[in-house]
């Protein structure tokens, strides 16, 4: 159980790292939103699943299972809310007229 939890948390941290690198290195607003929206959602989901599994490694009793279920509720909430907020920010950026990054800018 502990090994499974470690694998989950390390994978989650990997996705967080790639999302942060994408946020820092991508050229424009839309690319950055795409990197953080996807990477953060998957990273948070995997990390929280890992924490829920790690919480169970002392044994299955009612309090630990309850805490694990609460952690999974947080994961579900993030799974629903994070893409929606990314969508809202990106759409408001599009409505306000943020120019997408195109090939011409690379050539120029």
């Amino acid at each position: 159980m502990s090994i499974l939890a470690i694998i989950f948390i390390l994978t989650g941290v990997f996705f967080f790292t790639t999302a942060t690198i994408g946020l820092l290195r991508f050229p424009d607003f839309y690319c950055r939103m795409q990197a953080t929206g996807k990477g953060d959602t998957l990273g948070a989901l995997l990390s929280l699943t890992g924490l829920a599994l790690y919480n169970l490694h002392h044994g299955f009793s009612l309090p630990t299972i309850l805490v694990s279920i609460k952690i999974m509720f947080i994961a579900i909430f993030i799974f629903v809310a994070n893409p929606t907020s990314t969508h809202a920010i990106t759409k408001s950026g599009l409505d306000c007229g943020v120019e997408p990054f195109t090939k011409e800018e690379v050539i120029r």
């Binding site: 929606t84 969508h87 809202a88 759409k91 408001s92 409505d95 306000c96």
Partner: peptide
């Protein structure tokens, strides 16, 4: 003024 009605949100 921006019309902001989005079915997903």
């Amino acid at each position: 003024t921006i019309e902001f009605k989005d079915v997903i949100i």
